[in-house]
Structures are given as C-alpha cells and as structure tokens.
C-alpha cells in the first residue's frame, strides 16, 4: 500500500502546507525583514539597520517596563493557575455526587467571553460600589482602588486570570482519568495514606499534563493582551502596559511597524528560550510512565 501513500499524504496535508507558507513562513520572514526597517504604512519600508533593536535596548524604557510587567504576570498567574487547576481537578476526581454541576460551575468563567468577563471585573473591582470592596467594607476594610492603583492593577488581572482556570482544569481531569487504578491499588497495598497517594502516585503521573499546561500557559501569558486592552489600556502609570500591548500601541497608534516587528522578534526569542529551558528541565521532574 505504501506506493500511493506519498501522494495521498501530501494531497491531504496540502492545505496545511499552503497555510504554513502563506500564513506562517511568509509573515515570519517578512517580520524579520521589517524589523530592520522603518515602516509607517506609507510604502516602501525604509532600511535602518539594527536601529530598532538598538532603540529597544537603549532608548525605550517602556520596553523594559512592559517586559517586567509581563514577567510579573507570568510568574504569578501561571503557577497559581497550575495550583488551582490541579487542586480543583483532584477534588473533582473524587467519587461524590453532583460532579457534573461542580464541573460546570468551575468551567463557567472560562467560557464567558473575555470582553464580557472584563466588563464584569471592571465592575466587581470598582473601588466605590464594586462587589469586592463592598465585601471588604463589611469586615471593616477599606479596599484599594484595584485597577486604578499602581500597586494593585497587576494582582487584579492575576486574580481574574486564575478565575478562568476552568479550561486547564478539564485537561488535568482528563489526565487524572488516564492514571491506571492498579497504581493506586498497589500504593494502598504498600500502606500509603491519601496524602501519600496524591504525592507519590497522582502528582508524578500528572506531570506530563502539568508540563503541557505549563508550556501553553507560559506562551499564552507572554502574549497577554485583550484584558489589559479592554480594562486598563496599559494604565495607571504603565503598570499594566504588557509587552503585547506596548507592541500593539507602537504599531497601530504610533505607526512604528518596523519597531513593533523587532519587538515581536525579541518576544519570539524569549518564548523559544523559555520553552527550551522548560523542555531541558523535563527530565528532572516530568515522568513519562508509559
């Protein structure tokens, strides 16, 4: 049968190949070329050598500000998301009644469209009449101004991110279902208590899924954009100016398309670097049991 397979295989993947060339490879190379140009949509792009990269590293403090912001967000939201996701999945893996209801409740926030949750959270976090500060006031605390405060704006967005943990929770749940019951039985035979079973059976067996979510979560966090665009537009005092938001403003508000391309490439290198590091760390903690 192998003789016809070459043709059939390439025919079936041909749309994907065309897509790769047109929507990935071309933009990828073009943005590399653009990153060495000044381009304000008035053609043609004009070559400026490494000027854009020099500007990033020496002349634009907002690049560093936005990078720090996104690192802050990633460092808090990704681990917190993993802890919450795994924790919820473990609870939901128990054999109790009403699981479907709980599962839906936890998943609900992550299917609500981002723009709607953003609107909702602006309202929840309203310093004067929002739900959060009203609750705090009941226990005698005057809450901060959340999104309008330099100190609290990023934590607010992290809370909101953790609130949408349902998607990865489902993936952990799927991972838990894949752990063979025989392993638990063996652990029970060895006299392991519940905590030990979680610690020495469940978690190690779950590490491939955690790894998957860690990589995807990290990539997503580095590109954090919509919530900040809708809710804070980068303010106050650039405290929520995340890298992708800064890039967007530079490109479409100040028409520095070449500069924004250089920023995109630096982001790409960072993401590839972090991904590579994560893959390198795999053998230390990820258990591929099969």
């Amino acid at each position: 049968m192998a003789r016809r397979n070459n043709l059939a295989g390439w025919v079936l993947v041909s749309p994907v190949v065309v897509g790769l060339l047109v929507f990935t490879l071309y933009p990828f190379l073009a943005s590399l070329a653009l990153s060495f140009c000044e381009y304000d949509l008035f053609p043609p792009p004009r070559g400026v050598g490494a000027w854009n990269y020099e500007t990033m590293f020496t002349r634009d403090p907002l690049v560093w500000k936005s990078l720090t912001n996104v690192l802050y967000y990633t460092a808090l939201a990704v681990p917190l998301g993993i802890v919450m996701g795994v924790g919820l999945a473990l609870l939901l893996d128990a054999k109790i009644k009403g699981l479907a209801v709980y599962r839906t409740l936890f998943f609900l926030p992550s299917i609500v469209p981002v723009v709607a949750t953003s609107v909702l959270w602006i309202w929840l976090l309203n310093p004067q009449i929002g739900l959060v500060n009203t609750l705090l006031r009941l226990v005698g605390i005057e809450g901060p101004t959340w999104l309008a405060s330099v100190a609290w704006s990023k934590p607010s967005l992290v809370f909101m991110g953790v609130w949408g943990v349902g998607g990865s929770m489902l993936i952990y749940l799927a991972g838990l279902k894949d752990i063979p019951a025989s392993l638990y039985e063996a652990a029970v035979v060895d006299g392991a208590n519940a905590w030990q079973r979680v610690r020495y059976v469940t978690l190690p067996m779950l590490t491939p899924v955690i790894f998957f979510n860690l990589v995807m979560g990290m990539i997503g966090a580095f590109q954090y954009f919509t919530q900040a665009y809708v809710m804070t537009q980068g303010g106050p005092l650039d405290s929520t100016r995340f890298y992708a938001l800064h890039l967007f403003f530079e490109a479409f508000q100040y028409l520095k398309m070449g500069y924004a391309s250089a920023m995109a490439w630096v982001l790409f290198i960072i993401v590839v670097g972090v991904t590579a590091l994560l893959f390198r760390s795999q053998h230390r903690w990820v258990h591929y049991g099969r």
Binding site: P27, S31, L34, Q223, A244, L247, S261, M263, L267, F268
Partner: peptide, 9 residues
C-alpha cells in the same frame, strides 16, 4: 510562535 510575530506582515 507568538501571534505578534505574524501580526504586522
């Protein structure tokens, strides 16, 4: 690949 890399071209 971050979407940003592709965005402008």
């Amino acid at each position: 690949l971050p979407g940003e890399v592709r965005m402008i071209p």
